[in-house]
Amino acid sequence: MEIIYRTAGIDESYKMAELYNEFLYDLKDSSKDIYFDFENISVSDRVKLLEDRFNADKGMIVVAEVNGEIVGFISMTIMSCFMIVSSVKNIGYIEAGYVKPLYRKLGITKKLEAMVVEFLKEKGIRYLELFTLLNNEPANESWKKLGYSPFRLQWRKDLNE
């Protein structure tokens, strides 16, 4: 089985938007957290939100393709560091990484991530960040394996309780 890794083009924005939404549904189902709940999400809205990712100055989407089907992707955006005054300025931020269940455990994320890293290094960007949920052990394990480590905790309080 041949897996092709490549950057997604703007002509694929609808396809990518659909897959991105699949990722969100997966997040919703697996997190079991109302915080990540939503009613409906539209593909065309998502297309608009993804516009910047096809602009090499602002981000990128890399995909894994099997027999013409996109089976996994990473969507990365370049943004300023969360502490605006920091000297770090811009960072790469992985807002979504998703591989269809049938294609997991084949090392697809690792390959895609490496493409993103290479892209950012060329731009002289030092940090690549992302968030996972604390209880999502498989995701935490796999990012750890790729050399990531947690550096800040995001806290919240449910004011309804």
Binding site: M1, V66, N67, V71, L102, Y103
Partner: peptide, 8 residues
């Protein structure tokens, strides 16, 4: 089975 499914 998974492998064969991936290969369609």
């Amino acid at each position: 089975l998974m492998d064969l499914m991936r290969r369609k």
